[in-house]
């Protein structure tokens, strides 16, 4: 038996839900966790090895203080393949909400004594180091995580879907709630990979996976407006999980 590939799962600023996703993993967690030699996974095991070379590194969470930048650079140097695990690492997700306000204003809301707080803007991982694959989602999509973990085992390029959630929604034969019910579904501008989880259950997509490649944000915003959403509601829809993403710039730029 050949030596197993080493996998490290690291956490920056996040809720740890994506790591939980790996533990609570529809009957497949044992397969996934035994296929690799896991060197670092604080949520999952007691003995963790820091500063050793790994074949695959998964990063959960975004950078919100400068020490994390050093940590991230160190992980990058020690890993062959580096991928983000979930929305926070991919595009700073919910943490990105604070990015359009002064840092001190945010700190004052959260802490009484600011003397030891050194927070910075929420920076996604791929703005700091080179990332090989982005696995977005809040939490990370299960099928996509499976695809990545299986492909990294054999050194194959994973199939990460760059298109819209609509494609997956239609493949499931769902009724389009954006058209039929005028619900504010973000599906047409959101990256696929979740299997259209929310629309399948009758709820509008809320963009937890962030923008798809080449999304047409202004056209959807216009449609939302026609359906009676206010400018503020539209702004929140486009910024909630994508921060101030360039793809949605035309809708979210308020300057």
């Amino acid at each position: 038996m050949a030596e197993k590939k080493k996998l490290g799962i690291f956490k920056l600023t996040s809720c740890a839900g994506c790591q939980m996703r790996l533990l609570y993993y529809q009957h497949r967690e044992l397969e996934a966790l035994t296929a690799y030699d896991i060197t670092y996974f604080k949520m999952g095991k007691r003995d963790n090895l820091e500063n050793i070379k790994v074949d695959v590194a998964l990063i959960e969470g975004c950078v919100t203080n400068s020490e994390q930048i050093d940590e991230l650079k160190r992980i990058r140097e020690n890993s062959t393949i580096l991928a983000t695990l979930g929305g926070c690492a991919t595009r700073s997700s919910l943490w990105g909400l604070k990015n359009n306000k002064p840092e001190k204003e945010i700190e004052e809301k959260a802490y009484k004594d600011l003397s030891t707080i050194h927070s910075i803007k929420a920076i996604p991982v791929n703005d700091v180091v080179k990332v090989d694959y982005l696995l977005p989602g809040c939490p990370v999509g299960e099928d996509e995580m499976t695809e990545f973990l299986q492909s990294a085992l054999v050194g194959r390029r994973p199939f990460i879907k760059p298109h819209s959630v609509c494609v997956e929604c239609k493949m499931k034969g769902n009724l389009c709630i954006l058209v039929a019910k005028k619900e504010p579904c973000m599906g047409p501008v959101t990256a696929a990979g979740c299997g259209a989880l929310c629309p399948t259950n009758g709820r509008p997509c809320y963009n937890c996976r962030g923008p798809m490649i080449a999304a047409n944000a202004p056209a959807l915003a216009k449609e939302f407006k026609k359906n009676g959403l206010s400018d503020e509601e539209i702004y929140l829809k486009f910024t909630a999980f994508s921060g101030l993403s360039k793809v949605y710039e035309e809708v979210t730029d308020r300057a």
Partner: peptide, 26 residues
């Protein structure tokens, strides 16, 4: 106005394009 979402081709009774991909296992 186009969102490039692909809804038109998915619901078209004559659109036949498909992609071929590989899938692994643990």
């Amino acid at each position: 106005r186009c969102l490039s979402c692909g809804n038109c081709t998915s619901v078209c009774p004559t659109c036949y394009c498909f992609d071929v991909q590989e899938k692994g296992d643990y």
